[in-house]
């Protein structure tokens, strides 16, 4: 399946910044094994943005860490798959080669700005460190660059000599962004960068990421559970559930032509401002225990369209259009429609 996607991209002769193929990541603990990521594939072109959407525990962060080859080991084990960042096979590089690529070709913005900055190093130094490591600059040159980066994210350069505790949460996340973008990476992984922030700040930060990404031509993997964020900045969307991609397509594919019951569930659990009388319809039940995934479709226990076949076998893949893929056995029946589609009055 992944190879088809890749092939498709190659056909378009676009420059691929990221190719993830059949990635499997497990956390092997003494008592049990957590199957966090179970064979996902996707790819990303230069300058594009993909949103990885899903509930907490869907394997989004693990996927991002795997792309950096930073899955904590032990207990994390990348069981299978390949990851190519700008052509480098991340899973086969030596530690030294990885250090050269991390921060330079690919970098990451973390979820919690309160804990992801080193409290005892000035923010300027934290930015400059990355620059010094990847570009042959002296400390003072790097520090000046760090100041420029701060200015770029909207913080006065003079504050480079201050420590993280002297900044507010939103500003710290800007620092995190500055660190990530310090060396103009070709790929940026943003792991729920706005979750920990106030709503007002969220928008600012999001706007900034979007703007900088365009400015620098960076490809972006936006990890979020917030469909609003996705709608705002993503070109592509991958909806993840229990370590698998269940629906994959362009923003329009997934938002306007939703096909997968889980994606539908996600939309239904959003409040609708135009129809406030509408009851929220949260998806019933919980995500399955990742140490004990069901034999069939992982979503089956919560799915309103479930059939016996779903429980027995892994969902089948349906290439709906050139860009739109879903994994759901219900579509084996060509007449099947989810409610959302019915509401739209037919497919497409």
């Amino acid at each position: 399946m992944g190879s088809e996607l890749n092939g498709q991209a190659a056909k378009d002769n676009k420059e691929l910044v990221l190719e993830v193929n059949n990635l499997v990541v497990h956390y092997v603990l003494q008592e049990e094994t957590v199957e966090a990521v179970n064979g996902i594939s996707f790819s990303l072109e230069k300058g594009k943005t993909i949103g990885l959407v899903g509930e907490t525990g869907a394997g989004k962060t693990t996927t991002a860490l795997a792309i950096m080859n930073l899955v904590p080991d032990p207990p994390g084990v990348i069981k299978d798959g390949t990851i190519k960042v700008c052509g480098y096979n991340m899973l086969e590089l030596s530690a030294r080669q990885l250090e050269k690529i991390r921060g330079k070709e690919v970098s990451m913005i973390f979820q919690d700005p309160m804990t992801s900055l080193n409290p005892v190093i000035t923010v300027g130094d934290q930015i400059a460190e990355s620059i010094m490591l990847h570009e042959k600059l002296t400390y003072s040159q790097a520090f000046n660059r760090a100041k420029e980066m701060l200015e770029m994210v909207g913080i006065p350069g003079a504050r480079a000599t201050e420590y993280p505790h002297q900044f507010s949460g939103g500003m710290r996340q800007r620092v995190g962004i500055a660190i990530a973008l310090a060396c103009n990476p070709k790929l940026l992984l943003a792991d729920e960068p706005t979750t920990a922030l106030d709503v007002t700040i969220q928008a600012q930060v999001l706007d900034m990421i979007d703007e900088l990404k365009r400015e620098l031509g960076t490809a972006l993997v936006m990890i979020t559970h917030d469909l609003g964020v996705v709608a705002k900045i993503c070109d592509l969307v991958a909806v993840m559930y229990a370590g698998r991609i269940v629906e994959y397509g362009t923003l329009e594919d997934v938002f306007d032509r939703t096909l997968h019951p889980y994606t539908e569930g996600l939309f239904n659990s959003l409040p609708d401002i135009r129809n406030r009388k509408n009851q929220l319809q949260p998806i019933p039940g919980l995500m399955p225990d990742p140490t004990n995934l069901p034999r069939g479709c992982s979503f089956a226990p919560r799915c309103r369209y479930v059939s016996d076949a779903c429980r027995e076998a892994q969902p089948t893949k349906h290439q709906v259009s050139e860009t739109h893929v879903i994994y759901c056995s219900a579509y084996d029946d060509s007449n099947f429609q989810i409610e959302r589609a019915r509401g739209r009055g037919g497919n497409g």
Partner: peptide, 24 residues
């Protein structure tokens, strides 16, 4: 978390320990 940040920047492991971890 900040050690992960440091690694994500490409800081070599010994510096992660010495500069980022030990100092804290």
């Amino acid at each position: 978390d900040y050690l992960r940040t440091a690694r994500a920047k490409g800081v070599p492991e010994r510096l992660v320990i010495r500069r980022h971890a030990l100092k804290n």
